[in-house]
Amino acid sequence: MIEITDARKRFGSVTAVDGVSFVAKDGAITGLLGPNGAGKTTTLRMLYAVMKPDSGSVRVDDVDAVEAPQEAQARLGVLPDGFGLYPRLTAREHLDYFGALQGVDSGRLAQRTEELIDLLDMRAIADRRTGGFSHGERTKVALARALVHDPQNILLDEPTNGLDVMSTRAVRTIVRRLRDEGRCVLFSSHVMQEVSALCDSIVVIASGRVVAHGTANELRHQTGCDNLEDAFVALADLDPGEQP
């Protein structure tokens, strides 16, 4: 479970996140939906403890991520914005490196690597260097790397961005599967269809604030729009500061 309460973050004179609060529950896929520049990535960075909020609190499974960032990180699997793979390492070596840093013992790590290679259908690319990988293949490696230590909470920053249909489907399948295993999945996107197709609960964020929180139906109902896209536009418009 991930809990963020009244988090704020400023960069100089720009307020990127302005009092964000929500809860992402175990056994559910929570979507973080918002236009570009709404503060999704900054919010996620505070959740996975690479950034400290100026104020407010972040808790991961009841661990304070501000006070004990490493303890929180041990419970998180993260696919950050931009995958950041090492082109000269193979897919398997990526899992070895991150698994070792997470403190997974070598026997368990080998077993887990095999599981993930099968789960993500990476057998053919497992021992190739990632330098020449396609976008879909890179996504798989980054996703496997995020899951190597079997984390309870999973944060995915725009994981399907730029993926083709087949790869997008594969990612969705994995995400659902993780949810069905009882994990907490938090998924950010600026694509409404993506979020409505996948998420049990949607947090709409605009100009660094949560403007709505609920299921897709609740959001439609709340805004009086039939179509989620219209609902999204209506919600994003709620904040006058957002529009030029």
Binding site: A49, V50, Q73, V78, G84, L85, L101
Partner: peptide, 14 residues
Amino acid sequence: ERGSLEPLLVNPAP
């Protein structure tokens, strides 16, 4: 520059 620093820093390592 490769963007691999952020994933690295997500690991619970000081």
